[in-house]
Amino acid sequence: MNIIINGIQYEVEKGITILEACRKAGIDIPTLCHDDRLEPSSSCRMCLVEIEGSKKLVTSCSTLVKENMVVYTHSARVMEARKEVLDLLVSNHPMECLTCAKSGKCKLQDYCYEYGITEASYKGARRKPKIDTSNPFYDYDASKCILCGLCIRVCDELQGTSAIGFENRGFDVVVTTPFNEGLVNSKCVSCGNCVSVCPVGALTPKKQTYRHWETKKVRTTCSYCGVGCQMDLVVKENRVVGVEPANVVPNDGLLCVKGKFAYKFINHPDRLKTPLIKRNGKFEEASWDEAYRYIRRKVNEIKEENGPDAFAGLTSARCTNEENYLFQKLFRAVIGTNNVDHCARL
């Protein structure tokens, strides 16, 4: 099927949306409420485009391509409409970018920059701040919420928990839990998948101690269960300060409470920091050389007296393949026994 976008002809698949066609053609369309994993909701109106022959602008996220369709993604009319959308959003949004945790990674901030929105032109009532801090891992600040609904739809369509929804009508709409009982008393399982998709600073991890531009991200595999979720560790000054899900197999952008929030053991003050040797019933700090020599002495003594089958090792399902390989090699090739097992049965 052929369509023309901004004067250039493209061959596209049947049944895809204008947004998908534009992305494939490398044309960037702004979106606030869109997520490829979800049904389109057409609520933010940022993805509006102009179609020749159509009086109204259409939402590209929910309009399918048609043969010989002529689309304009950045015409004056489109740009004006998007500016209006942004203007309306910031007119009801606290301009706290200087202190907001999301600054630097906020889609509203980015689009205001791109579309030149410096000030809200609609003065008047603003949504009252309604902050839910009951969950131990994240907070919801309704005053910063742009009502894109991503959090609600991810919680429902992908996570399958349906802990949150919209309440009230018109200007008073907020995201909340049934009967306003607070997140901690709801069905919420603290997976944080809502926090990960929030495009603004409405849903944020508690006590965030970094600004986004101070951090780097390192792609890795979660160290909890066997699903093997892919995630990015957020690192600031040699400390892990956050985790973000990666939208790839096998987890497709989802995590659970452990993967998303239970990372603070990494830089916990109780971490073991030096080898310890027990002397007279008490552990004393030792150097690596001392520890290795002590183990070597014991290995040689016991091997001489009792042979290799007096040795046994428990390798670890928490450690890497390479480490497990070396551990069994240590027991088999160096000590000389097959007495090596791990917790697969637990």
């Binding site: 595999t221 093997g228 690192v235 400390r239 053991f265 971490r271 080898p275 890497t320 393949n321």
Partner: peptide, 29 residues
Amino acid sequence: VILPAASFAEKDGTFSNTERRVQRVRKAI
């Protein structure tokens, strides 16, 4: 004797998940 190990965030390696997928673990700190 207790030997202090680095956590998964402090080393390179691979884990194999429940669907036999061998995936990278990367040193972040």
